[in-house]
């Protein structure tokens, strides 16, 4: 039984890792993301504005509505580019924003 438990655990974790690496979060509309209190979210939209600050970039992503996406590094984005953002929804100064984990 111990051997069986070990084999199931190790292969199970391996497959779970593969699943977690290959699944994408379901896309939400920006207005839906803004209604969320917390948690992970994935949105798509166009870059409307890019603001560089020390150590971070604030990107305004819009599609009908707009939301600010925070990236903790200085990177360049062309205005009008389509982006696919996954990150954590947070509230800052009464406004919802996404702390980016992945931008494609």
């Amino acid at each position: 039984m111990l051997k069986l438990a070990l084999i199931c655990t190790i292969t199970g974790i391996f497959f779970l890792y593969l699943i977690s690496e290959n699944v994408k979060l379901e896309e939400k509309q920006i207005f839906e993301a803004k209604q969320m209190q917390e948690g992970k979210v994935r949105i798509k939209g166009f870059v409307e504005n890019v603001e560089q600050k020390e150590g971070l970039t604030i990107i305004t992503v819009s599609k009908k509505e707009s939301i600010e996406v925070i990236v903790f590094e200085n990177i360049d984005f062309e205005i009008g580019t389509q982006v696919d953002v996954t990150g954590e929804i947070e509230e800052y100064s009464g406004k919802k924003e996404i702390i980016a984990e992945e931008i494609i």
Binding site: A5, T9, G12
Partner: peptide, 11 residues
């Protein structure tokens, strides 16, 4: 699936 893996690990 998570429940299955964690049960095996819990044993």
């Amino acid at each position: 699936f998570v429940l299955f893996i964690s049960t095996m690990l819990g044993l």
